[in-house]
Amino acid sequence: MLTTTQIERWLSEDVGHHDVTNQVPGETTGRLVAKETGTAAGLEAATAVFDYLGADVLEAVDGGTRVDPGDELLVLEGPARTLLRGERVAVNLVGHASGVATSTAEAVAAARAERDEVRIAATRKTTPGLRGIEKRAVVAGGGDTHRLDLSHMVMVKDNHVAEMGLEGAISHFRERVSFATKIEVEVESVADAPQAAAAGADIVMLDNMAPAAVREAVAALEEAGHEDVLTEASGGIGLEAVPEYAATGVDVISMGSLTHSAPSLDVSLYTGEP
């Protein structure tokens, strides 16, 4: 949920203390318009900004809607000064979120062309202060949020293994988590995948492995009787590599680039009559 404090912080950053630029008289209408093809997201945040300022949002497309150049994402009315003050914040939020959703949709389509079952997931590599918006954008693009924060799942990483050993680390955290909390274990070799599963991992992350190694690890888990353990491929996977990873039989492909490198979708706010 967006808070009033978040919205005030965004507006304060842009409007400042003495805004002369937007001191425009009268009432007007506004249209937030897509200027390129993509997947819309971030409209709830933009609506919240305009609601806070006192503008009326008459129409808004749903997150996940496929849009083309010229399509209207939001239709507004209210004081010209209000619409102009919310313009840059709304455009930035929708452009960024829609870029994340568009990148996610492209990755999902690339994966599903190989296998319908594979999921595309985000990571915690999000922009500070914008995680909620970016994670919602991933969902709008058809992706999976992965864990939203550290409390959602324990991830046993290389540093944990270096300190306690693979089996020791899994045992350490298993004793401390709720029955409802899953444990994911990061491995970097095919041999470690069934070892992690045998030690109690719910999910095995195949980190920085080439597709051929991922395929071997998935097969090794099945041969060892751990076919119920979920597998996740992760580590610098770009859009061009998604089909090859999807074909390995892995359950999840996680991509930090969905949030930290997605190009913004080009959108603009126009006021006055079309």
Rank of each mutant, 00 (worst) to 15 (best):
E27H: 14
S268A: 10
V156Q: 00
S178T: 14
E134H: 06
E188P: 02
T29L: 00
A241P: 04
L269D: 04
E223M: 10
T37I: 02
V154L: 09
E222T: 15
V250H: 02
V108Q: 08
E77Y: 01
I237N: 01
V67D: 00
M153F: 02
L74R: 04
L148T: 05
E36F: 09
R112Q: 15
T39K: 05
Q23R: 15
E106K: 14
H160K: 06
G64N: 08
G26S: 09
A213C: 04
T104S: 09
P274L: 01
A162D: 14
I133E: 09
T47A: 11
V100S: 13
E87C: 03
E44H: 12
L83Y: 06
L206W: 10
L74W: 01
L83P: 00
S151L: 11
A219T: 15
T123H: 11
L43P: 00
H160A: 06
H146P: 04
T82Y: 02
A169R: 03
R124A: 08
S189G: 11
V61T: 12
H152R: 10
R85K: 14
V177C: 10
V156T: 06
G129M: 01
A201N: 12
A213S: 15
T259D: 11
A210Y: 04
A217R: 00
L93V: 12
G30Q: 03
K125L: 10
E163M: 14
S268W: 03
T231C: 10
R85M: 15
A162N: 11
V61I: 12
V91K: 00
E184K: 05
A197C: 07
T104G: 04
A169G: 08
M155A: 05
E244T: 12
P211L: 11
T259S: 13
L84V: 02
G238V: 07
R147H: 06
H152W: 07
D51T: 15
R66N: 09
H160I: 00
S178H: 13
V154G: 01
M205Y: 09
A137N: 07
E240R: 14
A246I: 13
V20F: 14
V24F: 09
S103R: 14
S261G: 06
A137R: 04
A217C: 09
V252M: 07
Y245V: 07
A55R: 13
Y245S: 11
G238C: 00
E87I: 05
R115W: 14
G225T: 09
H96Q: 13
D62A: 14
L76Q: 03
V218D: 02
H152Q: 15
S261I: 12
G132K: 06
S12C: 05
T28R: 05
E227T: 11
R119T: 12
G143W: 01
